[in-house]
């Protein structure tokens, strides 16, 4: 059981999982042998030499040069090999193939944003199967880390700089993506899915994804899509429940106190300002933690406003 592939790992889905898993099982075998040896020898000695009346300790050497050299050198040789194989396998996973398809990744508390060359954007990662994908990542706030266990991939996402990683997955399917660097309140909800699609399906998806408002049946529907896609839902409920931010239910058009004093009515311009410059007028009682959505298109802002209005009416 311990050496079976499926016991330890999610099924390997990217091209470098084979080498990785081989190394893991190699170290596992070495460790199991050494551990079994230690326990067997220890148990045997304890049983054989346990204290019994009439028997006392026998003299034995207090050191033995040959033995000590042997048990230092053999592990040394093994770890040199483990180090070398670990390094070369790692290096292959770090060497970017020249023809990779690039996806820009932005991490923020507490959602992912994947941006495609044609300006499509989504909180989940969509990639074509059978093609090398390069992720170029940065963070808007604190350090996050992008982890896709099925691809054995992990890379820290650091504010103020770009980091990158790559993979190639040949099997279409859906895989888990986690944030693995602790980033505060909703760290454990900073999940996404990786959708690996056949090339043709991917091409369709990315073309469609680029035009949210144009694709939606109505402005209201576009607003609802944007509410989920842009990560609003992480902090603003539509049920009246207070999460990290105030709920949107029945809120549009109402007046509220803002921190630092004063009051403001939630109208079209307040919504726009809150998206572009979220820290300007924070509702009293909430932390100023909302990230900016400065790059959002005008028709998208209009769509969100339309959606918020519908929530005010309780539709």
């Amino acid at each position: 059981m311990f050496f079976a592939q499926g016991f330890w790992f999610p099924d390997g889905a990217s091209t470098n999982t084979g080498d990785h898993d081989w190394l893991f099982h190699f170290i596992l075998a070495i460790s199991a042998i050494f551990f079994a040896l230690i326990i067997a020898v220890g148990t045997a000695f304890v049983l054989k030499y346990r204290r019994r009346p009439g028997v006392s300790a026998e003299k034995s050497p207090t050191h033995n040069g040959t033995l000590e050299i042997v048990w230092s050198v053999i592990p040394s040789i093994l770890i040199v090999f483990i180090f070398y194989y670990g390094f070369t396998t790692y290096l292959a996973s770090r060497t970017m193939p020249p023809e990779a398809f690039e996806v820009q990744v932005t991490a923020k508390k507490w959602s992912w944003e994947f941006n495609y060359p044609n300006s499509a954007q989504d909180p989940d990662l969509y990639v074509p199967a059978g093609k090398a994908i390069r992720l170029v990542m940065t963070s808007e706030d604190v350090i996050h880390s992008l982890s896709i266990p099925a691809f054995r991939l992990k890379q820290d996402v650091v504010p103020g700089r770009y980091t990158d990683s790559w993979f190639q997955c040949d099997e279409p399917g859906t895989y888990n993506l986690f944030c693995t660097e602790y980033c505060g309140t909703l760290h454990s909800k900073m999940l996404a899915k990786v959708h690996v699609l056949p090339q043709a399906e991917f091409d369709d998806w990315v073309e469609k994804a680029a035009d949210i408002v144009g694709n939606a049946p109505s402005l209201l529907a576009a607003g609802e899509i944007l509410y989920h896609k842009r990560g609003c839902a992480q902090c603003h409920s539509i049920t009246g429940e207070t999460l990290t931010g105030p709920s949107f239910l029945g809120s549009f058009g109402t007046e509220r106190a803002i921190s630092g004093g004063g009051r403001v009515t939630m109208d079209e311009n307040y919504v726009r300002e809150s998206l572009v410059n979220p820290q300007a007028k924070v509702v009293a009682g909430f932390q100023p933690v909302m990230p900016t959505f400065k790059g959002m298109k005008d028709d998208e802002i209009t769509a969100i406003i339309t959606y918020l209005k519908s929530l005010a009416k309780g539709e």
């Binding site: 080498d19 990785h20 190394l23 893991f24 170290i27 596992l28 070495i30 460790s31 050494f34 551990f35 770890i79 483990i82 180090f83 194989y85 670990g86 390094f87 396998t89 790692y90 996973s93 880390s145 982890s147 266990p149 054995r152 991939l153 992990k154 693995t180 660097e181």
Partner: peptide, 19 residues
Amino acid sequence: GLTGLFLGALATDIHLHDT
């Protein structure tokens, strides 16, 4: 000690890091 080997080796550490 032995599980430290998995974390010292680069390729396997990447997958196991922060898990």
